[in-house]
Design a protein around this nucleic acid. Structure first.
Lengths: 143, 143
DNA sequence: TTTAAAAAGGATAAAAAGGTCTTTTAATCT
DNA sequence: AGATTAAAAGACCTTTTTATCCTTTTTAAA
């Protein structure tokens, strides 16, 4: 479904958001431990999220990563878009370049519904909505 | 969503089924032209489908590929399973190895619904059901 | 102002996915 | 039987994804 980068990126963003809510900055090493991801690779992904202004990074002692207040409303679909592009939301299930209602592949109409549902779900889920739930339910971020 | 192999494999299987309904066998070169896929790579995929007894191959002059009558009821989910495995139907959206109702990732419950819907759709769609529609509607198999 | 902590950036490596080419096997037709 | 046609099989190549390592830059604290 998603690339490894995207899976790690989503888990990292959720973890950082969770900690930011508690006013904590978190270091790369903490993040990769908590979400169980390869550290150096995770660093690259966090750089992408930082460049795209989804998370904030602070260098130096007592530095780390955080999600700023106003970025807590970031939709998960934005993170997916940054890391995997939008093909999951718009691409044809059978890989056709031109597939739409006027020239549909055999799966087109049913696929659109599933794609749309996934999209809606990831748009309706934000860092703040997830971290709110994380405290209530017993959800997890590592295997 | 699916790998290239799976996209080509689904398109190929649908095209072969379509032709089998008209009592035609089709050669590799015809298939790769009609579904617009790389020929040698498509050959590998067709081998997998043949080994898994989804399509039948016949060597020699007037040979080619076909879908036997009783295999026309093959579900698309079986083809996906052969070519991509079942992770799309069962895997966690965030890539966690152990993610279920008792220890869910933050997206688990909404993800399950989408996964299930995709699965049901691909189970309910068979080679025969698709080829029936292909004649009626103006669906396409190449870009 | 030196030290140390932490992210950024660049080069490189390993693994997987995507794709090609050549030889072998099987079927058909003179 | 021999020639020809077509898929099977296996070796090989290329690109992308996943991942690591090392150096540089930034910055807080002693």
């Amino acid at each position: 479904m998603f690339s490894k980068s995207c899976e790690y990126g989503l888990r990292a963003a959720i973890f950082i958001a969770q900690q930011s809510k508690l006013k904590n900055k978190v270091s790369l090493s903490t993040i990769s431990e908590e979400i169980n991801s390869p550290q150096a690779f995770t660093a690259k992904i966090l750089q992408q999220l930082t460049r795209n202004n989804i998370i904030k990074s602070i260098k130096g002692p007592y530095g780390g990563f955080m999600v700023e207040e106003e970025k807590m409303s970031t939709q998960l679909s934005e993170i997916v878009n940054v890391l995997d592009g939008d093909s999951i939301f718009t691409g044809c299930g059978l890989g056709l370049k031109q597939c739409d209602a006027s020239a549909p592949c055999p799966l087109h109409f049913e696929f659109v519904e599933i794609r749309e549902r996934l999209k809606k779900m990831l748009e309706n889920t934000t860092l703040i909505s997830i971290t709110d739930e994380l405290n209530i339910e017993s959800t997890i971020l590592k295997p």
